Amino acid sequence: MTLTEPGAQALFDKFGTYILPGRVSDPRRGIDEAIEAERIGLGCVWISERFALKEPAVLAGAVAQATSKIRITGTFYATMRHPIVTASTANLMQALSGDRFRVMFARAVPAYMKMLGSPPITMDRLADTISIMKRLWEGETVNYEGIMGNFPMLKLTDKYDGPQPPIIFTAIGPKSLEFAGAHCDGVLLHPFVSPQGVRNSARIVREAAEKAGRDPMAVRIYHNIIVAPDLPKDEEDAVVRGRAITYFELPGFGDLIVEINEWDKSVLDQIRAHPKIASLNGKPADQAYTRQELVDVGQILPQQWIDEGAAVGTAAQCADQLMAYLDAGADEILLHGAAPKDMGPLTSELKRALAAKGL
């Protein structure tokens, strides 16, 4: 595919995909997925962190050498590594990839961090980590004593002189969105945030950026959307409804999605009262059940939540639905659910829809 084809440049600029979503047994598949994502014209691959076979630094390096154009976003838990290690990894990845790397920080569930013996990922820790990394990338020698520890002399000995990698923060609630606006180059919104939720989120982010004295439009809005184009009904239900339950059943977490979308919170009570969820006693559903095993719970979800929060149906219907998120203020969309090998028809329809919008 060439970028001169109608809609192709916009597809590359505005759409990417996860590689190796969920639990993984063969990480080499992720390299093939990245190559295929670049072949069909997507502009970014996103790598999540799961301790075993999804180490973002290793995978990002492999993807950088297997591809030539596609952007690479690696997710990191800020308190799991010394700040100079994360800064050095990103510095090296920019040099290795030709300025294609982006850092994403995520906030893990505090109980999970505690189980690993790692400090919780608080806003204060994130703010100091980001500040230390940016100073190191500027070539400074950093003397720091604070919540992250005591670091008398931090310096990147061989600093790459290219552009600093953008720092993205994944956020749902108002405080997280405000943090992204004040400290980060972009924010990744959560799956099942509706177009109205995108508008509400973008407003919070950009107001916080302006309050912090930053250019509000320089903070990019990335949106993570579950897509299920042309899937058989049972597979579609697992990809969309089964996966959705793993988000909505979590106390606090599901509530934030519903609040930003202005949806009916009573549905969450029904989900959490279902015998499969109630019997978990606080254990996350995705650690106890497969997506297929949660499809029956997923039938509780109103059709409106699926229509507004995901992209489901034919490839053409999915492409048209995705345009609604761009119209609502998303700068770039992360496609989640379907694998790159199944996205060829969707990317063709996305080029059609983007060209029709004059993009």
Rank of each mutant, 00 (worst) to 15 (best):
A285F: 12
R352H: 13
D320Y: 00
A52G: 12
V187P: 03
S88T: 14
T157S: 10
G309F: 02
G252W: 00
S266N: 14
E38N: 05
F248H: 05
T89A: 11
L96P: 02
M80H: 13
D331G: 12
A218P: 05
T129N: 10
R102M: 15
A8L: 10
F248T: 08
S88W: 03
A182D: 06
I204N: 01
E36L: 12
M343Q: 14
D264L: 10
K265T: 15
G162P: 03
I70S: 07
A62F: 04
I70M: 05
L359F: 12
G22C: 03
T129D: 10
D237M: 09
F76R: 09
D13Y: 05
A64H: 02
E259W: 01
A127G: 10
P21M: 09
Q292G: 10
L335E: 14
G117W: 04
L126K: 01
V240L: 03
V219C: 08
P302G: 11
G43T: 11
G139C: 07
G43R: 04
A171N: 03
D269W: 00
P340Q: 07
P110D: 10
D342Y: 06
A57R: 05
L3Q: 12
A338I: 01
T170V: 11
I31C: 00
D230G: 09
P229D: 10
D13S: 04
R135C: 04
A244R: 00
L250V: 15
H223L: 13
R203D: 06
G7E: 13
D230K: 07
L359Y: 11
Q270V: 07
M113H: 11
I172G: 01
A180S: 12
V24K: 08
I47Y: 08
E236G: 04
A37C: 05
M1E: 12
M153G: 07
E33L: 02
L59Q: 14
R220P: 03
T67I: 09
G146C: 06
A111T: 15
P251W: 04
I306V: 15
W305K: 06
A310S: 15
D99V: 00
L189V: 02
P163F: 02
A127E: 14
F12D: 10
N281W: 06
P251T: 04
A202E: 07
G329E: 03
D269E: 11
K357Y: 03
D234V: 14
H183F: 02
C184A: 15
P56S: 05
M115D: 13
K341C: 08
Y18W: 14
P174Q: 03
A209P: 06
D124S: 14
G139N: 04
M1T: 12
T79E: 11
M1I: 11
I172M: 09
V297G: 08
N150P: 00
D255M: 05
L59K: 10
G197W: 03
Q303F: 06
R29E: 15
C184P: 00
E178M: 05
S348K: 15
A310P: 07
F169V: 11
R107K: 13
G41V: 05
N150H: 14
E207I: 01
A78W: 08
Q270C: 03
D320I: 08
P229S: 09
E259P: 02
E210H: 09
T170N: 01
W46I: 11
R199C: 01
L334H: 14
I167G: 00
V205L: 08
A218I: 10
F179N: 00
H336N: 15
G139E: 08
E38R: 06
F105C: 06
V45C: 08
R272L: 14
P166W: 08
